[in-house]
Computed example of a mutant assay.
Amino acid sequence: MRIGELAERAGTTTRTLRYYEDRGLLPARRTGNGYRSYDEDDLRLLREIRVLQDFGFELEETRPFVDCLRAGHPAGDACPASLAVYRRKLAELDGLIGKLADVRDQVARQLGAAEEAAGEAATPRCETTAPATTTD
């Protein structure tokens, strides 16, 4: 299949496919007249890349999965290098979750303090909560 058909079937653009080709993730096979030529295995590679990127993997992090598929394995995560990328990504995500939990705790403390202060203070009204005045 040609590049336009592959792009359509993969749900991407020809520009993206050329970029993947430049990065060595997609093979650069050419027909006799110079057109790029792809097959179902290339579509499978692209789907693997897309799923991983949807999970938050950087493009370069998809390389071991692509290499694993190219080596003839039934799945891109059947190789030790792919498993290592999964482990690194999980560690990264765990770190981000920890940071988000810390931020959430800080925001909750600030909210609690603000609500307590608002309950103790005389009840001045904020501009956004003051009743609208009408003019006759």
Results as ranks from 00 to 15, higher is better:
residue 78 A to W: 00
residue 79 C to M: 09
residue 79 C to I: 09
residue 79 C to T: 05
residue 79 C to K: 11
residue 80 P to E: 08
residue 80 P to R: 12
residue 81 A to I: 09
residue 81 A to S: 07
residue 81 A to G: 05
residue 82 S to R: 06
residue 82 S to I: 06
residue 83 L to T: 12
residue 84 A to G: 11
residue 84 A to L: 07
residue 85 V to M: 15
residue 86 Y to F: 12
residue 87 R to W: 03
residue 87 R to L: 05
residue 88 R to Y: 04
residue 88 R to G: 06
residue 88 R to C: 07
residue 88 R to T: 15
residue 88 R to N: 03
residue 89 K to N: 02
residue 90 L to N: 03
residue 90 L to T: 14
residue 91 A to W: 02
residue 91 A to C: 02
residue 92 E to Q: 15
residue 92 E to I: 05
residue 92 E to V: 06
residue 92 E to F: 14
residue 93 L to A: 13
residue 93 L to Q: 10
residue 94 D to K: 14
residue 95 G to P: 03
residue 95 G to E: 13
residue 95 G to M: 11
residue 96 L to T: 09
residue 96 L to D: 01
residue 96 L to K: 15
residue 97 I to T: 03
residue 97 I to H: 11
residue 97 I to F: 08
residue 97 I to C: 06
residue 97 I to G: 02
residue 98 G to W: 11
residue 98 G to A: 15
residue 98 G to C: 06
residue 99 K to C: 05
residue 100 L to W: 03
residue 100 L to G: 00
residue 101 A to R: 11
residue 101 A to N: 08
residue 101 A to G: 01
residue 102 D to A: 12
residue 102 D to G: 04
residue 102 D to P: 01
residue 103 V to C: 02
residue 103 V to G: 05
residue 104 R to W: 00
residue 105 D to Q: 15
residue 105 D to S: 15
residue 105 D to H: 10
residue 106 Q to L: 13
residue 106 Q to Y: 04
residue 106 Q to W: 10
residue 107 V to N: 07
residue 107 V to A: 14
residue 108 A to W: 00
residue 108 A to D: 11
residue 108 A to R: 10
residue 109 R to M: 08
residue 109 R to E: 02
residue 110 Q to S: 10
residue 110 Q to P: 02
residue 110 Q to W: 02
residue 111 L to N: 01
residue 112 G to S: 15
residue 112 G to A: 13
residue 113 A to K: 08
residue 114 A to G: 03
residue 114 A to S: 08
residue 114 A to I: 04
